[in-house]
Simulated assay, not measured.
Amino acid sequence: MAGQPKQVQKRSLGFYSIDPSKHTLLEDAQGLVTGAMVAALGFYFLNKVGLLTGGTAGVAFLLHYAFGISFGLLFFIVNLPFYYLSFRRLGLAFSLKTFIAIGLVSVISEIESRFFLIDYLHPFWAALLGGLLLGYGLLALYRHRASLGGVGILAIYIQDRFGIQAGLIQLAFDLCVMLCAFAVVSPVTVAWSVVGAVVLNLFLAINHRSDRYIVVR
């Protein structure tokens, strides 16, 4: 019994926190790395067959398909303007972890094709797996107070400033991305991309609840 307080303190400062509402540095690190790896794999499936998704990733995909520029580089650059809003609205810790997560996804997206290659992938399967993997990756990042894009932050800012619902702003942005996609990809590709986006958002709507998972508070 005499050694119990030291053991509790060691657990709290080491591998995991005994407080369910807080994470240790190591817990955050593994959450960011694994979340980024899973999300990057989701992007790989979408990119493999030329699909898109919503948010800043959708903008990066549009530019990637239109001009042939690296998706990973574009994904990192497109998110840069949103960091200031992130810092003002959600604080330094969230902004820093989001910056790290986006940087990891950008790097992993560039190197993962060197480790495995898929010869054939049907667009439906790419949309389904891509949406689910992005959902899992985002869920891991959300649990550790991070994200993969700035459109949601911008939507919150506009809601506070002008009273327009953030969900409507996010939806309008994603619709604009899909409409612009008609200029660079086929209508069938846009349709499969919408399927992937629906899978992603349904997965998050079902599994991401702050009243169920207190670690996201």
Results as ranks from 00 to 15, higher is better:
residue 126 A to E: 01
residue 214 I to L: 14
residue 20 P to L: 04
residue 102 I to L: 04
residue 111 I to F: 15
residue 117 L to R: 13
residue 66 A to K: 13
residue 207 N to L: 11
residue 41 L to D: 00
residue 49 V to T: 11
residue 60 A to Y: 11
residue 3 G to V: 14
residue 189 T to F: 08
residue 180 C to S: 12
residue 68 G to R: 03
residue 166 A to E: 04
residue 178 M to Q: 05
residue 174 D to T: 02
residue 34 T to L: 03
residue 21 S to D: 09
residue 10 K to C: 08
residue 13 L to I: 14
residue 161 R to T: 04
residue 42 G to K: 03
residue 15 F to E: 10
residue 153 I to G: 06
residue 191 A to Y: 02
residue 9 Q to H: 04
residue 98 T to N: 03
residue 145 R to N: 12
residue 161 R to A: 15
residue 112 E to A: 04
residue 68 G to M: 05
residue 169 I to R: 04
residue 209 R to Y: 01
residue 167 G to C: 06
residue 69 I to E: 07
residue 92 L to G: 03
residue 169 I to L: 14
residue 28 D to P: 00
residue 48 K to Y: 12
residue 66 A to Y: 13
residue 72 G to K: 06
residue 28 D to S: 02
residue 166 A to V: 01
residue 70 S to Y: 09
residue 216 V to S: 11
residue 117 L to M: 12
residue 148 L to C: 02
residue 197 A to V: 08
residue 48 K to A: 12
residue 66 A to G: 01
residue 144 H to K: 14
residue 123 P to I: 02
residue 71 F to V: 07
residue 56 T to Y: 07
residue 44 Y to V: 02
residue 165 Q to L: 09
residue 164 I to Y: 15
residue 101 A to F: 01
residue 174 D to P: 08
residue 103 G to H: 00
residue 210 S to H: 09
residue 196 G to K: 01
residue 112 E to L: 13
residue 212 R to K: 13
residue 72 G to P: 01
residue 43 F to H: 07
residue 83 Y to A: 05
residue 131 G to W: 01
residue 175 L to Y: 00
residue 103 G to F: 03
residue 73 L to G: 02
residue 160 D to S: 12
residue 197 A to H: 07
residue 14 G to D: 14
residue 105 V to M: 13
residue 55 G to V: 02
residue 164 I to S: 15
residue 59 V to I: 15
residue 131 G to L: 03
residue 210 S to T: 06
residue 116 F to G: 04
residue 24 T to P: 06
residue 68 G to A: 03
residue 127 A to H: 01
residue 21 S to V: 00
residue 162 F to V: 11
residue 5 P to D: 11
residue 115 F to T: 02
residue 169 I to N: 07
residue 101 A to W: 00
residue 194 V to C: 10
residue 14 G to R: 11
residue 125 W to V: 05
residue 81 P to H: 01
residue 199 V to A: 08
residue 136 Y to K: 11
residue 159 Q to L: 10
residue 180 C to P: 00
residue 139 L to Q: 09
residue 45 F to P: 09
residue 132 L to D: 02
residue 79 N to W: 04
residue 5 P to R: 06
residue 42 G to N: 04
residue 92 L to S: 14
residue 44 Y to K: 15
residue 79 N to I: 04
residue 206 I to H: 10
residue 43 F to Y: 10
residue 117 L to C: 12
residue 50 G to L: 03
residue 80 L to T: 15
residue 95 S to D: 12
residue 159 Q to M: 12
residue 157 Y to N: 05
residue 91 G to Q: 04
residue 53 T to W: 14
residue 78 V to L: 05
residue 175 L to M: 14
residue 59 V to N: 01
